[in-house]
Design a protein around this nucleic acid. Structure first.
Lengths: 337, 337
DNA sequence: GCCCATGATGAAACCGGTTTCAGAAACAGT
DNA sequence: ACTGTTTCTGAAACCGGTTTCATCATGGGC
């Protein structure tokens, strides 16, 4: 008849209990914990002493109800385990923590249905919600904007948003490859959406400027396996360089090329997008477009906090610039290979 | 004078409003949403109709307060952006979702202080809490066990726990290397803790059985950069194979070896632990010990749910076995290289 | 020594639900 | 027709805080 290993809530001590024990009203105890200097020093000390002794701490749920403020934020990302999402989430959590906010996290696994459902479920339990690359309908988004809401990598009406704009940097990637002598540069498209559109825009823009004929493969699901598959498709063309939708695809390409005994960058130059930690870990280290993932998370939180405290939020979407990071997966074109 | 872009809570409709509109008492409305068949069909329909019309939905915070059940779980991991943590978190979120639970996530960033603080902050807001590789004091853990709590990769008293036991599989890795002719196999230690202890146990056990002299380097922080650094240390020994604390370190080793012009597995065999997605993406693909990360998350949640519903939880820690995955980073030893 | 502003406190309402308890109505049994 | 159940429903208390508003001292100004 051992003790139960996991107890459960040895009946919380309530504010009234502290109040009576300290010989004051609940209101006063409440004040001690909310606006301490609204109560006389000696009363405060007395209350604090009792609270300490009873290990009292205000119940956040009750507090949320009364204050109509939960002290929580929520984020829904496409895939929690995805490196990019994870970095955003981490940054959001940290930035939120600085202001004492806890964070709800959920992953949509790319299902608009689940995404919307989760967002709805979180909404009444958080003070602000961040949606990363949401795929739900415009209509659904508008309804959610009922509470402070910030979008990442999607634009809608004048909803507050933060976008990581890869277009310029992808353009730079193309220029970089062009400067290395590449004239056949293929783009491996990712799933339809804001991110792919921006990358594509940068790609096309640069191609036009440089007189390179744009060539697009895909769309792919943008996972490692897609890169592996894409590699062979690329090799079936006369391309000498490839810009992938993201790092994962790029690494898939790298992997398949290695298997086929081809060398990067000698036989093919490869560029990714994201600059996830992966990029520096593979061989050869990946030339890639760095997206300010963590920064976007931080900015998102700040917008949310502004909204919550009724401070003015940026009227325009915040655009965070990306940056081309040249590493070892791109090199001069080799003629007549 | 535009409309505010982000509205905020067009004053929620409350249960009393629905009640009066439907000509019933709040109690009845409540019942409609909690035990629908405790109310007469026609009353129910009427209430439901009004609710629909008013877009009423029970307020989760109020509900939490009244029911003393939040419908939330919490998890605190060492590092949200870490691949292993992320996989666990994802699995936990998905498994929790199946039972309608939302998930609080927070990262301790390896600071016992923050970890404890977060756990404490979450505790009153969740029905159950999972701590992954917690580093807080035993005392602190015991206090938290006030609510349903499950530990991952740490054992304490008889607290419910799920552990991914790599010891056997690390032993298998050593046997594997031994079979390939390796006689000098060095282990790159990670930070002190349950995980390192288990790996070390497997390593030492196998070394003893096989008559290999164990050799340990480290401890390292177990990040990529540590692997890079460790590589040179390994090369300064006469080792022909290395078992790294985890994949990240192993990949760091791989990377540095490539830079120094050495070939894996010809010049050095490398084994990791975790089998994160990374392992399959690097060149050569990494031989590694697969830890059932997702499974541990799922099991953790199930234990939590059992605890919450007062079903019996496993009296013993649940041990999840790891498995050696042989890929291309290990090969026969080359004599007289 | 009187008046008024100021500061500290408590009573009570409220946040938005759930749940106990009791009463009314409907139903069955004899 | 009368009694004993069973089914539905509402009143009221409760979950654990916050906040408004009124009250009562207190202290400063003149």
């Amino acid at each position: 008849m051992g003790e139960p290993v996991v107890g459960r809530g040895e009946e919380r001590v309530s504010i009234r209990e502290v109040a009576t024990r300290a010989g004051v009203s609940p209101a006063t105890v409440s004040r001690v914990f909310t606006r301490p200097d609204a109560v006389a020093p000696d009363t405060r000390d007395r209350v604090l002493a009792v609270a300490q002794e009873l290990r009292y701490t205000p119940h956040p749920v009750a507090r949320s109800l009364a204050r109509r403020r939960t002290g929580n934020l929520g984020i829904v990302v496409p895939d929690i385990a995805n490196s990019f999402s994870a970095v955003v989430t981490k940054a959001v959590q940290q930035e939120a923590a600085r202001d004492g906010y806890a964070l709800f996290v959920s992953g949509s696994d790319e299902r608009a249905q689940d995404e919307e459902q989760w967002a709805r479920a979180m909404a009444p339990q958080v003070d602000g919600l961040m949606l990363v690359s949401p795929l739900m309908s415009d209509e659904a988004l508008r309804e959610l904007a009922d509470i402070p809401l910030v979008l990442s990598n999607r634009l809608l009406d004048a909803l507050p948003a933060v976008v990581t704009d890869a277009s310029d940097a992808v353009g730079h990637a193309v220029e970089h490859l062009h400067a290395l002598g590449h004239r056949e540069i293929v783009y491996l498209a990712g799933p339809d959406g804001f991110a792919n559109t921006m990358r594509l825009r940068g790609y096309h823009g640069a191609c036009r400027r440089l007189g390179v004929r744009p060539r697009e493969l895909g769309p792919f699901n943008a996972r490692f396996a897609d890169g592996v598959r894409a590699a062979d498709l690329v090799l079936a063309t006369s391309a000498t360089a490839v810009v992938a939708y993201n790092d994962e695809v790029a690494v898939g390409v790298l992997n398949r090329l290695a298997d086929r005994g081809l060398r990067v960058p000698d036989d093919l130059s490869v560029v990714g997008v994201d600059d996830t930690s992966l990029a520096e870990m593979v061989t050869p280290r990946l030339t890639t477009v760095r997206l300010p993932a963590a920064e976007s998370g931080r900015v998102g939180v700040r917008i949310l906090l502004d909204l919550i405290d009724r401070r003015p939020a940026p009227a325009e979407p915040v655009r965070l610039a990306a940056e081309l990071i040249v590493r070892s997966s791109t090199g001069p074109v080799r003629h007549g290979e």
